[in-house]
Design a protein around this nucleic acid. Sequence first.
DNA 1: TTGAAAGCGATACCAT
DNA 2: ATGGTATCGCTTTCAA
Lengths: 336, 336
Amino acid sequence: MSTIKDVAKIAEVSIATVSRVVNNGPKVGEKTRNKVLKVMADIGYKPNANARALVTQKNTTIGVVIPDLTDPFFASLANGVEKIARQNNMQLLLSTGQVSADSERRAINLLLERQCDAFVVHSKKLADEELISLAQQAPGLILIDRFIEAIQHRCVWLDNFEGGGIAARHLLSLQHTQLACVTSHYSIDDPSLRLQGFSAELARQDKQMVPELIVDAEPNQQGGELATQKLLSKHIPFSAVFVYNDAMAIGVISALEDNGFRVPQDVSVIGFDDVLLSRYSRPKLTTLHYPIEEMAEKAAQLALANCEQVSIHQSSETFKYLPRLVKRESTSALSL
Amino acid sequence: MSTIKDVAKIAEVSIATVSRVVNNGPKVGEKTRNKVLKVMADIGYKPNANARALVTQKNTTIGVVIPDLTDPFFASLANGVEKIARQNNMQLLLSTGQVSADSERRAINLLLERQCDAFVVHSKKLADEELISLAQQAPGLILIDRFIEAIQHRCVWLDNFEGGGIAARHLLSLQHTQLACVTSHYSIDDPSLRLQGFSAELARQDKQMVPELIVDAEPNQQGGELATQKLLSKHIPFSAVFVYNDAMAIGVISALEDNGFRVPQDVSVIGFDDVLLSRYSRPKLTTLHYPIEEMAEKAAQLALANCEQVSIHQSSETFKYLPRLVKRESTSALSL
DNA sequence: TTGAAAGCGATACCAT
DNA sequence: ATGGTATCGCTTTCAA
């Protein structure tokens, strides 16, 4: 691969001049510029981004750490960041953190070594303290889908509690009173917050759940099916189910139908996340839209802004997002 | 951010020594090593990857160019490459090429500037000649999902023609004779190859299609629904449909059911790709598995290998993959 | 308008 | 075992 020296030699100018034309520098003679431009094109010169980054101390990449790309939810997150990257003529440097604290830490470190000054991290495994200290040393680090009070201005997160409340209000407004919940036994935070919000809203309206009608399973379709079996085996009637996420909800619906219940005529089902799946299912899923792409864009912009200003101007802004109810076909009013 | 000099100064050794311990260099005294290690930990030293790349002339990133991350198919592709990257302690540098030739070209160039020596490219818009010349100057460039004879040892691709054949054999073996096809009017290559393979297999078995029963639409769920309307409006009976991809197939099924046809009892439907969706649909989709993740891994390994050996050892290997029939619930034998 | 030269942070070769 | 130093490709003063 040819370097700036090659160009300089062939064009019979100094490397300084070449550098100027590469960067559209201010004072370059018209003829010199054209001569250099021609040589560059001829030999297919491409500036070395590493060398450039080394001297300018700034990187043209923005990093992302997510558990896994195959999950459409995280793919959307990455996509949001990528969009901002592209708008700023930057590229995405991606590390999957998998499920362990170790690999999350490793991924972040790699990004740091790359001098990647802006990056958004989705971490579920790292402890608060570690994240806080990381955030301190890396001003461009933004946490997504996680709220840590000590660094709240660096967090872009969804109000899961309120999400549960919205779901409850929707079901209640449809006259349902016999409510069931299917939750996840993984990653404690989100599921329990959603559940708490749900219960809190019921309480506010002087209703409450039958504890037996709260079951958990793995957060995927099969888990949803299993959970439904458990629910059904209790022989306690229910007319609506609030499910942890859409994948599970699809499982719940198919198990329900396999057992002779029609959705939504006999049982209403509401999911969470609004992933692609929910639009493709039959019946189409009523769910809570998780604006992950929008949040990711915000996080990326924040990360970028935070590196710009060396000042620790710590905007007092806070970045809480609310899920939005998307009424589709899997919920309907209780028919008596 | 602290540099190697800082460490050297504090530890009272030369930067050469620090460099040795960073790289687990061979000859370093035990005490010196520990002293340096301690200082590094204390001040949180992280080697600058850019400087490193500059001098070693090798990059620790592997690039990917895809149209879009939100499409699960491309997400899987990226995931396959990422897996190989991780195995080699590298990271993913990702550029979305969007739909235009310009942005595909731009994405590739950015990767090149980053000295990214290994990368896998999914390009549908760039012309053969351009890709060929690119491949010539970048030995680590591997094309995925595209076959160009002149650089066939740099291509990892799926035999779409044969895929059509497999679909036809499956439907024929189930006694179907009234066949319909729903294809895509986008990106000419894949759809038409699949269709040609389908027809060729029919011909081989002395069958043929009614030309009216071939319709096209956009390659998504809605397109599938629209296409089905068109099909139905012809008032020509058919008992099986070969659909361009899974998303369309889901649309076909729901339109069919909306019009009173049961799947698979009245009409069998077979998709293509085997994306997540196909396992979540009801009935579960019979489809052709596109081993994209496996292909992506292969492509990444190839890219890596090609940069290693400076020799143009041009293995005469070729990398054609075959789709695999996945029988699920949307196809069944014709019942008379 | 152009060139010379000093670094950016690391590696690696040559001494010692 | 350790240190000195040239070098990687580029940007950026400072002179001319």
